[in-house]
């Protein structure tokens, strides 16, 4: 069963470290309207921060889209981070804790995965990377 958008998505262009702050604030505010607990709002904002930084560090620019979703049973918030950067050569290694080719010390993607309920990543060399992650309410 696929997750359906049940509200309008907010898109944030990611080009600089200031955009990382904007993206997590947008995510937090949409999550707040959906009724997540305060702790979960912080967890969502932190996960957005990690995937947004991944864009700035590796792809230089990209986009984060945040939308309310539902699958008929539960509602939640879905975040899609997309870039047209160099892509990730070895996804398994990139998702391993502690691995990094840049300066993030490898906490970024595996960290975001731990914070969210669902996490999918796809990447193609020379084409870019897409991360789709969801947090369900309750």
């Amino acid at each position: 069963m696929s997750d359906l958008h049940v509200g309008t998505a907010v898109r944030v262009r990611i080009q600089s470290s200031a955009d990382i702050v904007t993206a997590r604030q947008e995510g937090r505010s949409m999550a707040a309207t959906l009724g997540f607990t305060n702790t979960t709002l912080t967890i969502i904002a932190t996960a957005i921060s990690e995937v947004a930084r991944n864009i700035v560090e590796y792809a230089k620019e990209g986009e984060i889209s945040i939308a309310p979703v539902g699958n008929g049973i539960v509602r939640g918030l879905q975040i899609v981070a997309r870039d047209q950067g160099p892509g990730i050569v070895d996804l398994d290694t990139a998702m391993r804790d502690g691995f990094s080719t840049s300066k993030s010390l490898g906490m970024g993607l595996p960290g975001a995965k731990r914070l969210m309920d669902q996490f999918e990543i796809s990447s193609a060399i020379g084409e870019g990377t897409t991360v789709k992650m969801t947090k369900w309410i309750g």
């Binding site: 997590r24 937090r28 912080t42 904002a45 932190t46 921060s49 990690e50 930084r53 993030s104 010390l105 906490m107 970024g108 960290g111």
Partner: peptide, 9 residues
């Protein structure tokens, strides 16, 4: 409201 990996480091 957020201390992520970069802020912590």
């Amino acid at each position: 409201d957020v201390l992520d990996s970069f802020a912590t480091r």
